[in-house]
Protein backbone atom coordinates (compact mmCIF):
# COMPACT_ATOMS: atom_id res chain seq x y z
CA UNK A 1 0.00 0.00 0.00
CA UNK A 2 1.09 3.53 -0.69
CA UNK A 3 1.65 5.70 2.36
CA UNK A 4 0.35 9.29 2.49
CA UNK A 5 3.21 11.69 3.15
CA UNK A 6 3.40 14.91 5.12
CA UNK A 7 4.10 18.19 3.38
CA UNK A 8 7.76 18.34 4.36
CA UNK A 9 8.28 14.84 3.16
CA UNK A 10 6.75 15.75 -0.20
CA UNK A 11 9.21 18.58 -0.54
CA UNK A 12 12.00 16.19 0.31
CA UNK A 13 10.75 13.51 -2.05
CA UNK A 14 10.07 15.68 -5.10
CA UNK A 15 12.68 13.75 -7.00
CA UNK A 16 10.34 10.79 -7.03
CA UNK A 17 8.23 12.61 -9.61
CA UNK A 18 11.12 12.20 -12.00
CA UNK A 19 10.34 8.48 -11.97
CA UNK A 20 6.98 8.94 -13.60
CA UNK A 21 7.83 11.82 -15.93
CA UNK A 22 9.40 9.80 -18.79
CA UNK A 23 6.46 7.41 -18.93
CA UNK A 24 3.98 10.23 -18.73
CA UNK A 25 5.70 12.19 -21.48
CA UNK A 26 5.73 9.18 -23.81
CA UNK A 27 2.07 8.51 -23.21
CA UNK A 28 1.07 12.15 -23.56
CA UNK A 29 2.93 12.53 -26.85
CA UNK A 30 2.18 9.26 -28.59
CA UNK A 31 -1.20 8.29 -27.16
CA UNK A 32 -3.06 11.35 -25.86
CA UNK A 33 -1.98 13.84 -28.47
CA UNK A 34 -3.05 11.63 -31.43
CA UNK A 35 -6.37 10.90 -29.73
CA UNK A 36 -7.14 14.58 -29.19
CA UNK A 37 -5.92 15.38 -32.66
CA UNK A 38 -8.27 12.74 -34.09
CA UNK A 39 -11.27 14.36 -32.41
CA UNK A 40 -10.17 17.79 -33.62
CA UNK A 41 -9.53 16.78 -37.22
CA UNK A 42 -12.75 14.83 -37.57
CA UNK A 43 -14.44 18.24 -38.03
CA UNK A 44 -12.14 19.24 -40.88
CA UNK A 45 -11.75 18.64 -44.55
CA UNK A 46 -8.10 17.69 -44.39
CA UNK A 47 -5.88 15.84 -46.80
CA UNK A 48 -2.87 15.64 -44.55
CA UNK A 49 -1.10 18.86 -45.45
CA UNK A 50 -1.11 22.35 -43.93
CA UNK A 51 -4.36 23.31 -45.62
CA UNK A 52 -7.51 22.30 -43.83
CA UNK A 53 -11.02 23.64 -43.74
CA UNK A 54 -13.51 23.50 -40.89
CA UNK A 55 -16.65 21.78 -42.13
CA UNK A 56 -18.49 21.12 -38.89
CA UNK A 57 -20.37 17.84 -38.84
CA UNK A 58 -20.18 17.23 -42.59
CA UNK A 59 -17.77 14.29 -42.18
CA UNK A 60 -20.19 12.59 -39.83
CA UNK A 61 -23.16 13.30 -42.06
CA UNK A 62 -21.24 11.77 -44.92
CA UNK A 63 -20.33 8.74 -42.79
CA UNK A 64 -23.96 8.00 -41.94
CA UNK A 65 -24.92 7.93 -45.60
CA UNK A 66 -21.74 6.18 -46.79
CA UNK A 67 -23.04 2.83 -48.03
CA UNK A 68 -19.56 1.24 -47.90
CA UNK A 69 -19.24 2.12 -44.23
CA UNK A 70 -22.71 0.84 -43.39
CA UNK A 71 -22.08 -2.48 -45.17
CA UNK A 72 -18.74 -2.64 -43.37
CA UNK A 73 -20.52 -2.43 -40.04
CA UNK A 74 -22.83 -5.29 -41.07
CA UNK A 75 -19.78 -7.35 -42.09
CA UNK A 76 -18.03 -6.67 -38.82
CA UNK A 77 -21.21 -7.71 -37.00
CA UNK A 78 -21.06 -11.05 -38.79
CA UNK A 79 -17.37 -11.39 -37.92
CA UNK A 80 -18.24 -10.71 -34.28
CA UNK A 81 -20.70 -13.61 -34.30
CA UNK A 82 -18.05 -15.81 -35.97
CA UNK A 83 -15.54 -14.88 -33.31
CA UNK A 84 -18.00 -15.66 -30.53
CA UNK A 85 -18.38 -19.16 -31.98
CA UNK A 86 -14.61 -19.39 -32.33
CA UNK A 87 -14.24 -18.90 -28.57
CA UNK A 88 -15.78 -22.32 -27.91
CA UNK A 89 -12.88 -24.62 -28.91
CA UNK A 90 -10.46 -22.85 -26.57
CA UNK A 91 -12.81 -23.26 -23.61
CA UNK A 92 -13.46 -26.87 -24.57
CA UNK A 93 -9.75 -27.63 -24.86
CA UNK A 94 -8.95 -26.00 -21.52
CA UNK A 95 -11.66 -28.03 -19.79
CA UNK A 96 -10.50 -31.26 -21.45
CA UNK A 97 -6.90 -30.69 -20.44
CA UNK A 98 -7.94 -29.83 -16.92
CA UNK A 99 -10.02 -32.97 -16.55
CA UNK A 100 -7.07 -35.24 -17.29
CA UNK A 101 -6.00 -37.17 -14.24
CA UNK A 102 -2.31 -37.17 -15.09
CA UNK A 103 -0.47 -33.99 -14.13
CA UNK A 104 2.41 -34.86 -16.38
CA UNK A 105 0.15 -34.96 -19.45
CA UNK A 106 -1.43 -31.69 -18.40
CA UNK A 107 1.94 -30.01 -18.38
CA UNK A 108 2.98 -31.65 -21.65
CA UNK A 109 -0.16 -30.40 -23.40
CA UNK A 110 0.34 -26.91 -22.05
CA UNK A 111 3.85 -26.86 -23.43
CA UNK A 112 2.68 -28.20 -26.80
CA UNK A 113 0.03 -25.48 -26.90
CA UNK A 114 2.67 -22.81 -26.62
CA UNK A 115 4.57 -24.18 -29.62
CA UNK A 116 2.37 -22.54 -32.32
CA UNK A 117 3.07 -19.19 -30.67
CA UNK A 118 6.61 -19.27 -32.02
CA UNK A 119 5.21 -18.65 -35.48
CA UNK A 120 4.84 -14.90 -36.00
CA UNK A 121 1.20 -13.92 -36.48
CA UNK A 122 1.95 -12.56 -39.89
CA UNK A 123 3.40 -15.88 -40.98
CA UNK A 124 0.32 -17.68 -39.63
CA UNK A 125 -1.79 -15.39 -41.80
CA UNK A 126 0.26 -16.08 -44.89
CA UNK A 127 0.18 -19.81 -44.22
CA UNK A 128 -3.60 -19.59 -44.09
CA UNK A 129 -3.62 -17.70 -47.33
CA UNK A 130 -1.65 -20.65 -48.69
CA UNK A 131 -4.04 -23.20 -47.17
CA UNK A 132 -6.94 -21.38 -48.85
CA UNK A 133 -5.11 -21.29 -52.20
CA UNK A 134 -7.41 -22.76 -54.89
CA UNK A 135 -4.84 -24.97 -56.63
CA UNK A 136 -2.21 -25.85 -54.05
CA UNK A 137 -4.04 -25.28 -50.78
CA UNK A 138 -4.71 -27.94 -48.17
CA UNK A 139 -8.37 -27.01 -47.74
CA UNK A 140 -9.34 -27.77 -51.34
CA UNK A 141 -7.26 -30.96 -51.22
CA UNK A 142 -9.18 -32.12 -48.15
CA UNK A 143 -12.54 -31.19 -49.71
CA UNK A 144 -11.72 -33.01 -52.96
CA UNK A 145 -10.12 -35.96 -51.19
CA UNK A 146 -13.03 -36.67 -48.86
CA UNK A 147 -15.67 -36.31 -51.56
CA UNK A 148 -17.14 -33.33 -49.74
CA UNK A 149 -16.89 -31.44 -53.02
CA UNK A 150 -19.71 -33.54 -54.55
CA UNK A 151 -21.89 -32.72 -51.56
CA UNK A 152 -21.14 -29.01 -51.87
CA UNK A 153 -21.86 -29.07 -55.61
CA UNK A 154 -25.13 -30.92 -55.00
CA UNK A 155 -26.21 -28.38 -52.38
CA UNK A 156 -25.12 -25.61 -54.71
CA UNK A 157 -27.21 -26.98 -57.60
CA UNK A 158 -30.19 -27.51 -55.32
CA UNK A 159 -30.23 -23.91 -54.09
CA UNK A 160 -28.89 -22.44 -57.31
CA UNK A 161 -26.07 -20.50 -55.60
CA UNK A 162 -23.68 -20.68 -58.55
CA UNK A 163 -20.69 -20.92 -56.22
CA UNK A 164 -19.35 -24.50 -56.40
CA UNK A 165 -18.74 -26.38 -59.65
CA UNK A 166 -17.43 -29.84 -60.49
CA UNK A 167 -13.89 -29.75 -61.81
CA UNK A 168 -13.30 -26.13 -60.86
CA UNK A 169 -11.13 -25.49 -57.79
CA UNK A 170 -12.89 -23.42 -55.14
CA UNK A 171 -11.50 -19.88 -55.07
CA UNK A 172 -11.89 -19.18 -51.38
CA UNK A 173 -10.38 -15.72 -51.48
CA UNK A 174 -11.36 -14.78 -55.03
CA UNK A 175 -15.11 -15.46 -55.19
CA UNK A 176 -17.11 -12.67 -53.54
CA UNK A 177 -19.66 -15.09 -52.06
CA UNK A 178 -16.92 -17.07 -50.33
CA UNK A 179 -15.12 -14.19 -48.62
CA UNK A 180 -17.17 -14.31 -45.44
CA UNK A 181 -17.04 -18.13 -45.18
CA UNK A 182 -13.26 -17.93 -45.65
CA UNK A 183 -12.98 -15.39 -42.87
CA UNK A 184 -14.92 -17.84 -40.73
CA UNK A 185 -12.83 -20.91 -41.59
CA UNK A 186 -9.62 -18.97 -41.13
CA UNK A 187 -7.61 -20.16 -38.17
CA UNK A 188 -9.39 -23.51 -37.73
CA UNK A 189 -9.50 -25.09 -35.08
CA UNK A 190 -9.48 -21.63 -33.52
CA UNK A 191 -7.35 -22.37 -30.50
CA UNK A 192 -6.00 -19.23 -28.86
CA UNK A 193 -2.97 -20.23 -26.82
CA UNK A 194 -3.16 -17.33 -24.40
CA UNK A 195 -6.88 -17.89 -24.00
CA UNK A 196 -6.47 -21.58 -23.15
CA UNK A 197 -3.71 -20.85 -20.63
CA UNK A 198 -5.84 -18.18 -18.97
CA UNK A 199 -8.86 -20.50 -18.76
CA UNK A 200 -6.63 -23.23 -17.32
CA UNK A 201 -5.46 -20.80 -14.65
CA UNK A 202 -9.08 -20.17 -13.72
CA UNK A 203 -9.78 -23.90 -13.54
CA UNK A 204 -6.77 -24.59 -11.33
CA UNK A 205 -8.73 -24.17 -8.13
CA UNK A 206 -10.87 -27.25 -8.87
CA UNK A 207 -9.23 -30.28 -7.31
CA UNK A 208 -9.65 -33.90 -8.40
CA UNK A 209 -11.78 -34.58 -5.31
CA UNK A 210 -14.49 -32.24 -6.60
CA UNK A 211 -14.76 -34.35 -9.74
CA UNK A 212 -14.81 -37.55 -7.70
CA UNK A 213 -17.60 -36.18 -5.54
CA UNK A 214 -19.51 -35.16 -8.66
CA UNK A 215 -19.06 -38.63 -10.11
CA UNK A 216 -20.38 -40.21 -6.93
CA UNK A 217 -23.46 -38.05 -7.28
CA UNK A 218 -23.85 -39.29 -10.83
CA UNK A 219 -23.35 -35.93 -12.52
CA UNK A 220 -22.67 -36.20 -16.25
CA UNK A 221 -19.83 -34.51 -18.15
CA UNK A 222 -22.01 -31.69 -19.48
CA UNK A 223 -23.53 -30.84 -16.11
CA UNK A 224 -20.05 -30.92 -14.62
CA UNK A 225 -19.09 -28.22 -17.07
CA UNK A 226 -22.18 -26.16 -16.37
CA UNK A 227 -22.05 -26.29 -12.58
CA UNK A 228 -18.39 -26.77 -11.70
CA UNK A 229 -16.19 -25.45 -14.46
CA UNK A 230 -18.11 -22.65 -16.16
CA UNK A 231 -18.66 -20.55 -12.99
CA UNK A 232 -14.93 -20.58 -12.32
CA UNK A 233 -13.87 -19.29 -15.73
CA UNK A 234 -16.62 -16.70 -16.16
CA UNK A 235 -14.24 -13.89 -15.20
CA UNK A 236 -11.78 -15.04 -17.84
CA UNK A 237 -14.53 -15.43 -20.43
CA UNK A 238 -15.64 -11.89 -19.76
CA UNK A 239 -12.08 -10.68 -20.22
CA UNK A 240 -11.89 -12.56 -23.53
CA UNK A 241 -15.19 -10.99 -24.57
CA UNK A 242 -13.90 -7.47 -23.98
CA UNK A 243 -10.71 -8.21 -25.90
CA UNK A 244 -12.77 -9.82 -28.67
CA UNK A 245 -15.05 -6.82 -29.06
CA UNK A 246 -12.13 -4.39 -29.20
CA UNK A 247 -10.10 -6.66 -31.46
CA UNK A 248 -12.87 -7.48 -33.94
CA UNK A 249 -14.33 -4.01 -34.29
CA UNK A 250 -11.02 -2.21 -34.50
CA UNK A 251 -9.06 -4.87 -36.36
CA UNK A 252 -8.32 -4.73 -40.05
CA UNK A 253 -4.87 -6.32 -40.41
CA UNK A 254 -6.40 -9.70 -41.23
CA UNK A 255 -8.56 -8.30 -44.02
CA UNK A 256 -5.74 -6.13 -45.33
CA UNK A 257 -3.41 -9.10 -45.69
CA UNK A 258 -5.78 -11.91 -46.70
CA UNK A 259 -7.67 -9.70 -49.12
CA UNK A 260 -6.49 -6.17 -49.97
CA UNK A 261 -7.15 -2.55 -49.02
CA UNK A 262 -10.50 -2.69 -50.83
CA UNK A 263 -11.74 -5.67 -48.82
CA UNK A 264 -11.19 -8.24 -51.56
CA UNK A 265 -13.46 -9.10 -54.52
CA UNK A 266 -16.72 -7.19 -54.36
CA UNK A 267 -15.52 -5.50 -51.16
CA UNK A 268 -17.16 -8.32 -49.21
CA UNK A 269 -14.43 -8.29 -46.57
CA UNK A 270 -14.57 -4.54 -45.97
CA UNK A 271 -14.68 -3.65 -42.27
CA UNK A 272 -14.87 -0.15 -40.73
CA UNK A 273 -11.22 -0.15 -39.65
CA UNK A 274 -10.11 -1.08 -43.14
CA UNK A 275 -12.31 1.60 -44.66
CA UNK A 276 -10.66 4.13 -42.35
CA UNK A 277 -7.23 2.89 -43.44
CA UNK A 278 -8.34 2.99 -47.05
CA UNK A 279 -9.73 6.56 -46.86
CA UNK A 280 -6.58 7.83 -45.13
CA UNK A 281 -3.78 6.08 -46.94
CA UNK A 282 -5.35 5.27 -50.32
CA UNK A 283 -7.68 8.25 -50.89
CA UNK A 284 -5.83 10.76 -48.70
CA UNK A 285 -9.02 11.89 -46.97
CA UNK A 286 -7.48 12.18 -43.51
CA UNK A 287 -10.28 14.26 -41.99
CA UNK A 288 -12.92 11.78 -43.05
CA UNK A 289 -10.76 8.89 -41.82
CA UNK A 290 -10.53 10.58 -38.41
CA UNK A 291 -14.30 10.82 -38.18
CA UNK A 292 -14.68 7.11 -39.07
CA UNK A 293 -12.19 6.45 -36.27
CA UNK A 294 -14.31 8.51 -33.87
CA UNK A 295 -17.47 6.60 -34.79
CA UNK A 296 -15.64 3.30 -34.26
CA UNK A 297 -14.36 4.51 -30.92
CA UNK A 298 -17.87 5.36 -29.73
CA UNK A 299 -19.24 2.00 -30.90
CA UNK A 300 -16.43 0.06 -29.21
CA UNK A 301 -16.79 2.04 -26.00
CA UNK A 302 -20.54 1.50 -25.77
CA UNK A 303 -20.28 -2.23 -26.53
CA UNK A 304 -17.58 -2.63 -23.88
CA UNK A 305 -19.79 -0.76 -21.46
CA UNK A 306 -22.81 -2.96 -22.23
CA UNK A 307 -20.65 -6.05 -21.84
CA UNK A 308 -19.41 -4.93 -18.43
CA UNK A 309 -22.89 -4.00 -17.35
CA UNK A 310 -24.87 -7.03 -18.40
CA UNK A 311 -22.44 -9.92 -18.63
CA UNK A 312 -22.21 -10.20 -14.89
CA UNK A 313 -20.01 -12.41 -12.85
CA UNK A 314 -21.64 -13.47 -9.62
CA UNK A 315 -19.07 -14.53 -7.11
Amino acid sequence: MAIPLSRQKVLREWRLYLFVVPSLLMVLTFAYFPAVSAVYHSFFDWSGGEAKQFIGLDNFKRAFTDSTLLTAFVTVGALMIFNLIKMIPSILLAVLIHRLTSNRWQYAYRALLVVPMIVPQLVTLFIWKFILDPNLGALNAVIEGTGLKHVLVAINDFFGWGVFFEGVPIGWLSQPELILPSLFIWGFPWIGTVGVLIYLAGLQSIGQEVYEAAELDGIGPFKKFLYIELPLILTQIRLSLVLLIIGTLGGYGLQLLLLNEYGGPGGRGMVPGLWMYNRAFVAGEFGYACSIGMILFVVILSLTFINNRYVRVDK
Binding site: M276, F286, L301
Partner: peptide
Protein backbone atom coordinates in the same frame (compact mmCIF):
# COMPACT_ATOMS: atom_id res chain seq x y z
CA UNK B 1 -5.80 5.17 -22.00
CA UNK B 2 -6.91 1.55 -21.64
CA UNK B 3 -10.25 2.63 -23.06
CA UNK B 4 -8.81 4.33 -26.11
CA UNK B 5 -8.67 1.90 -29.00
CA UNK B 6 -5.55 2.45 -31.04
CA UNK B 7 -7.56 2.17 -34.22
CA UNK B 8 -8.80 5.76 -34.00
CA UNK B 9 -5.28 7.00 -33.37
CA UNK B 10 -3.40 5.64 -36.31
CA UNK B 11 -4.13 8.49 -38.71
CA UNK B 12 -3.15 11.34 -36.34
CA UNK B 13 -0.21 9.26 -35.13
CA UNK B 14 1.02 9.06 -38.70
CA UNK B 15 0.72 12.84 -39.07
CA UNK B 16 2.46 13.39 -35.72
CA UNK B 17 5.39 11.20 -36.72
CA UNK B 18 5.50 13.01 -40.04
Amino acid sequence: LMLLPSVANIVPLFMLLK
